[in-house]
């Protein structure tokens, strides 16, 4: 299969021409992406416009194949859009990537089996040329952040799936990127572990004040975590609805039983249903 999208210049100046609010870190305008495959073109993203502000926790939700991963990968400059404009930190995505603007957490933990947890977390730090002492310090910091202190010397296979995923989050947090992109990081985990990690992730977000883009399949997860929920629909992938959460920043797990929570969840579900209905 040919995975190369047809290349067409993306226009960062388009983003510059109509200045976004000063605290806008990610701005997409009329973003389009068509994959050329052997079975013909696949329109993965169509006319996607979205602004993400500094400190936002944005969830992307929608049925599979609606372009959530593709959009996240565009922000990370792992895919090149075929139309529209996209800016990250006021730069093109690729410039932002080269400036190490974001940490990316993949669906699978993807830890190197031949490295201990601590050494895995050091990987980006080694590549980015941090000093040995600084590496040591940061590893300890992020291990504490994801509650894995004491597991630094273990190899990945000695850890449970949930712990491995936390280690991979720690790896993305170890360097100074103020954007964190996560593609269904808890998708493979069971409900209880997932609840726990959601809680931890919120705390971590509050402490680090990062801007987070988070792909999920789960409505409660999206509502519980986000300040902004982007509901997407498939064929072609596009944004169906953007819901700004009215929930307070402080969110205990039982907030999920509050009427407010249920109402937002309802709106997300409606959006998903409507998005699905019209194809």
């Amino acid at each position: 299969m040919n995975m190369e999208p047809t290349t067409q210049a993306i226009r960062p100046e388009a983003a510059a021409s109509a200045p976004a609010p000063a605290n806008c870190v990610i701005e997409a305008r009329n973003l389009d992406l068509t994959f050329q495959t052997n079975d013909g073109p696949v329109h993965a993203l169509k006319d996607v416009s979205l602004e993400i502000n500094k400190g936002d926790f944005v969830s992307f939700i929608g049925p599979s194949g609606c372009g959530k991963t593709t959009f996240l990968r565009c922000i990370a400059a792992l895919e090149t859009p075929t139309g529209g404009s996209l800016s990250v930190n006021g730069m093109t995505p690729d410039e932002a990537r080269r400036n190490r603007a974001y940490g990316y957490v993949f669906q699978a933990a993807g830890l190197y089996p031949w490295r201990t947890i601590a050494k895995n977390i050091k990987l980006p730090l080694e590549i980015m040329g941090y000093s040995k002492a600084e590496q040591e310090k940061r590893v300890n910091q992020v291990l504490e952040l994801v509650e894995l202190s004491g597991f630094g010397g273990k190899f990945p296979w000695q850890l449970s799936g949930g712990m491995q995923q936390r280690a991979s989050i720690a790896r993305a947090l170890a360097f100074d990127a103020d954007i964190l992109l996560m593609d269904e990081p808890f998708g493979a985990l069971d409900e209880i572990v997932r609840d726990h990690l959601n809680e931890q992730l919120l705390k971590l977000w509050a402490r680090t004040n990062k801007t987070i883009g988070f792909v999920t399949h789960s409505i409660p997860e999206a509502v519980y975590l986000s300040t902004k929920i982007v509901v997407m629909s498939p064929r072609p992938g596009r944004i169906h609805d953007v819901i700004d959460s009215t929930l307070p920043k402080e969110r205990p797990l039982d907030i999920r039983d509050s009427p407010e929570f249920i109402e937002i969840a309802h709106r997300v579900r409606e959006g998903l249903r409507a998005g699905h209905g019209d194809d």
């Binding site: 792992l78 990537r97 190490r100 940490g103 990316y104 993949f106 993807g110 980006p124 590549i127 980015m128």
Partner: peptide, 9 residues
């Protein structure tokens, strides 16, 4: 794994 390295530039 290759993408991961790319995100680290």
């Amino acid at each position: 794994q290759l993408d991961l390295l790319k995100t680290y530039n």
